[in-house]
């Protein structure tokens, strides 16, 4: 049986001592959390199903550091590895895949130039193109354009707006419409982050996760807000996600991946243990 995937995410930035891992609280306040390669190895041993590295500086130095981190990780960790952060050209993708990554995650560049998704999936195959969709709920339905209605957990009618540049810039684009669009353009998977929840540890944004999962035929990775094993359980049951991504709850050792998987297995969710 196909299992639900648990994916730890490592936000990688460039420090004076080389690469380090940090996890943002609402992408702004950053707290350091360890060496990425060591963390990757630990997560692999604990039973992570995949790993995601996000280069949150996306600068030139950051990119070079990232290639080194990917190479060192891929030499020792034999599970799928996705890399994202500032990727906006086919040569970026090639460099990252050559270093040993299996997938790349494209975010802002896809919104700014959607043909990039089509080109990337044609050249490298859909299976290695993940489109990351960051979005935030919006109660304002005025103005033109598609706005698919979603009932937020507080009962309010909202639509979800795609945001870019790490959540700083709203785009006016409906997230559900965008999900179908990237599927059509050849994305193999969607990494969905609700900025309403990111960094809160209050649980995933279930309504948008579920809507998006039912809206498209490609797998959805739920992201943003995991604070407990129960939140991950809900992402799979209520949210219908295919995979759950989390950072803080694993980095600070609050829960191990194995503990989360045991929790899920006891409740009937298929996981690889």
């Amino acid at each position: 049986m196909l299992t639900k995937r648990i994916i730890p995410c490592l936000d990688v930035t460039y420090g004076e001592s080389g690469a380090c891992v940090v996890k943002g609280i609402h992408f702004v306040k950053l707290r350091e959390a360890g060496d990425p390669v060591e963390l990757a190895k630990r997560y692999n041993e604990e039973g992570a199903d995949e790993l995601v590295f996000l280069d949150i500086t996306a600068s030139h130095e950051g990119r070079e550091t990232m290639v080194d981190v990917i190479e060192r990780t891929a030499d020792e960790v034999f599970i799928p590895l996705t890399v994202g952060g500032g990727i906006d050209s086919l040569s970026d993708i090639q460099k990252i895949l050559r270093a040993g990554a299996d997938k790349v995650s494209i975010n802002t560049a896809a919104v700014k130039h959607k043909e990039f998704v089509r080109e990337a999936s044609r050249v490298f195959g859909s299976q290695c193109i993940v489109v990351a969709i960051d979005c935030r709920s919006n109660t304002n339905f005025s103005g033109s354009g598609v706005k698919n209605e979603v009932i937020r957990e507080d009962g309010k009618k909202v639509w979800y707006e795609v945001v870019i540049y790490g959540g700083r810039k709203p785009t006016g684009i409906d997230a559900l419409w965008w999900a179908q669009e990237v599927e059509r353009l050849g994305a193999g998977e969607i990494l969905l982050t609700s900025m309403d929840r990111d960094g809160t540890c209050d649980g995933y944004d279930i309504p948008i996760t579920r809507e998006m999962s039912e809206f498209v035929g490609i797998p959805i990775i739920a992201s943003g807000g995991a604070g407990s094993p129960h939140h991950i359980y809900e992402a799979f049951t209520k949210g219908k996600a295919d995979a759950a991504l989390a950072a803080s709850i694993f980095h600070y050792g609050e829960y191990t991946i194995r503990e989360v998987k045991e929790y899920l297995m006891e409740r009937g969710i298929p996981v690889r243990l």
Binding site: M1, L2, T3, K4, R5, D49, S126, Q127, G188, E189, S213, E214, V216, G217, I218, P219, K240, D242, A243, R272
Partner: peptide
């Protein structure tokens, strides 16, 4: 309902 049978088949299977 293809939403329950997503394609590609992606992930860990036995």
């Amino acid at each position: 309902n293809n939403r329950d049978n997503k394609i590609p088949h992606m992930g860990w299977n036995s």
